[in-house]
């Protein structure tokens, strides 16, 4: 049972100040843009809800939103089961556990534009190992021209980049299971599936909640990697939400619509995350 203590606010104050400084002021700026029209020269005109109506009914926004949802759904469907499977098969302790952890953490520590550039030169059909190999095997592959190949490459890159995060978190969850649980299961003659279903999965629930939330939020905000890898092409086939936003905001300098769009999309992430968070932590004594 936690103690009630309002003085705890003093302990949280530095965090609140620093984060609020970085979060509230830019957010207010964006809200401000979203209701105004600008023609340059710092001239702004109040437009009310015009941009929001325009964004919500625009086909362009619907298209990139659907692309984004598709992307997020596919990478979650691959990364979460794959991450758990790898964590289950990893050695629990000793030298090899360290080797696995160190090697698996590598992709997480590479700057995002380097990840994009690396996959670009890895997958290019003329100079890349992947592209060259696939073409040598008789598969017609060129991610700069074929929409399907571009999607497959984008997803492969994201799986390469982020599955390790799920692995690390699941590994942490699995390590917290006491040996006694496994011994009891062995005495009862439980099958491997039963051990997974009734011992490991419940223990993983908490870390998987975090993993899914983090992957969901970050995949919705993905920008640098697809920008460097495909630039949103061919055509608009891999233009995810953030890419589209930047095109509107900086490419066309339409600050109002871009701001309105980013707020709509911030609210979408917030809503999904909140529902998921509430459902997963329901009945938990926090």
């Amino acid at each position: 049972m936690k103690t009630r203590n309002q003085k705890a606010w003093f302990l949280v104050a530095p965090v609140v100040l620093l984060v609020a400084f970085n979060a509230v002021i830019p957010l207010m700026t964006v809200v401000n843009y979203s209701v105004q029209e600008t023609f340059g020269d710092n001239l702004f005109f109040f437009e009310g809800m015009k941009w929001f109506e325009e964004v919500l009914s625009s086909e362009r926004f619907h298209d990139s939103l659907i692309r984004q949802l598709k992307f997020t759904f596919i990478i979650l469907a691959i990364q979460v089961p794959l991450g758990v499977a790898i964590a289950l098969a990893m050695p629990r302790k000793g030298f090899w556990a360290s080797v696995c952890l160190v090697l698996m953490a590598m992709p997480l520590l590479i700057p995002w534009n380097v990840v994009g550039a690396m996959w670009n030169i890895f997958a290019l059909p003329d100079i890349g190992l992947l592209g060259k190999t696939l073409n040598a095997m008789g598969i017609d592959y060129n991610f700069t021209r074929q929409p399907f190949a571009a999607w497959a490459t984008l997803i492969a890159m994201d799986v390469w980049h982020w599955t390790s995060l799920v692995v690390l978190l699941s590994y942490a969850g699995l390590s917290s299971i006491p040996d006694a649980y496994y011994q009891a299961a062995r005495i009862d003659g439980a099958s491997a599936w039963a051990v997974f279903r009734y011992i490991q999965l419940p223990k993983l629930k908490h870390v998987l909640t975090i993993a899914v939330l983090l992957r969901f939020m970050d995949s919705f905000n993905i920008y640098t990697e697809p920008f460097v890898l495909t630039g949103g092409g061919p055509g608009n086939t891999t233009t995810l939400l953030s890419l589209d936003l930047v095109k509107i905001a900086l490419g066309q300098f339409d600050l109002g619509p871009a701001a309105a769009m980013s707020l709509v999309y911030f609210l979408i992430i917030l809503l999904f995350s909140w529902i998921f968070y509430t459902v997963m932590t329901r009945g938990e004594d926090k």
């Binding site: 002021i25 830019p26 957010l27 964006v30 905000n221 920008y223 939400l241 953030s242 871009a258 917030l270």
Partner: peptide, 10 residues
């Protein structure tokens, strides 16, 4: 969750 891409300008 805030899309960094658009918060860059502010």
């Amino acid at each position: 969750m805030a899309p960094a891409a658009v918060f860059a300008l502010p």
